[in-house]
């Protein structure tokens, strides 16, 4: 008698992350509301940024960095956390958690997509600003800029992962995010260098990895920039250290959060 062998299902983190990216893209394309944060908001941020830095010798770089980073920050935070909140609303959190893949891989996929859609936002800002001002900005150190740009995205993703864990933990996570979002915009130096804020805000800002990365990015792109004053090298060190700490926290938090929700049984709440 012929036997039919059925391959045993085995999950993989890479595949689950890619599946999550795919789902995020499909949802993005299917839902017109995403046009607002990803396409329209960056342009508005661009105009705000332009007005803010009018008169600065490096106006274009400030405008693009400020508006672009605000857009990416919003995408990463809002998108990563909100998507998990949406899982609660749709009732898909329970079936997703009941799959063998740890939920953190699903979150990772969403963050990847949100970073990419944030990039689309920054590209839009670039095109609009360059078209409006008629000149292409000159970057002081293009190679360092490219590397640090990717690093900044990575730091944003690290923060997004921690926020996503909060959404798994409680249905009230949206409250924290709504309250914190604009404070983070300012406090991490997305829009303008933190150094111009009152001194007491600086230590708080340094808790967040993007603050370091953004400062380093400005060193690489704006000639004569003086940020925190300790130079780009220490910014990178600080960024790497805080990002590592965030990823470690995210890993631990996710494990604890997944256990916690099984203890309290609130996965189906929305």
């Amino acid at each position: 008698m012929a036997t039919v062998s059925v391959p045993r299902a085995r999950w993989s983190g890479r595949r689950s992350t890619l599946a999550s990216v795919r789902l995020a893209i499909l949802t993005f394309l299917a839902d017109p509301q995403w046009l607002i944060p990803s396409m329209i908001a960056p342009i508005i941020f661009g105009f705000v940024s332009y007005e803010l830095f009018l008169g600065s010798p490096d106006l274009i770089v400030y405008v693009i960095l400020g508006a672009g980073m605000m857009s990416m920050w919003g995408q990463t935070l809002y998108g990563s956390g909100w998507a998990t909140g949406q899982d609660r609303n749709l009732g898909t959190l329970e079936p997703t958690i009941s799959a063998p893949t740890p939920y953190v891989f699903v979150v990772l996929g969403r963050i990847l997509w949100n970073v990419v859609s944030g990039l689309i936002g920054i590209a839009l800002v670039f095109v609009v600003v360059v078209a409006a001002m008629g000149t292409v900005p000159s970057i002081d150190n293009p190679l360092a800029f490219a590397v640090l740009f990717l690093f900044t995205m990575f730091t944003l993703a690290a923060v997004g992962t921690v926020f996503a864990a909060a959404y798994v933990y409680t249905r009230y996570a949206g409250f924290i995010q709504n309250v914190g979002e604009f404070a983070f915009y300012i406090g991490t130096g997305c829009m303008f260098p933190i150094i111009i804020l009152p001194f007491w805000t600086n230590p708080i800002a340094l808790i967040f990895p993007p603050s370091w990365a953004l400062d380093a990015l400005r060193y690489a792109s704006i000639p004569g920039y003086v940020g925190f004053g300790w130079g780009m090298g220490w910014d990178i060190v600080g960024g790497v250290a805080t990002t590592a700490a965030y990823l470690l926290i995210a890993g631990l938090v996710f494990e604890r959060v997944e256990r916690h929700v099984l203890e309290v049984g609130n996965l189906q709440e929305y």
Binding site: R10, W11, A19, L90, E94, P95, A99, P100
Partner: peptide, 23 residues
Amino acid sequence: RGLYNRISARENLRYFADLYGVP
């Protein structure tokens, strides 16, 4: 509840097949 309602049934199933590691 429990389904991604803006995408098709096929895409819903593809997603979960990936999470479950269906070859």
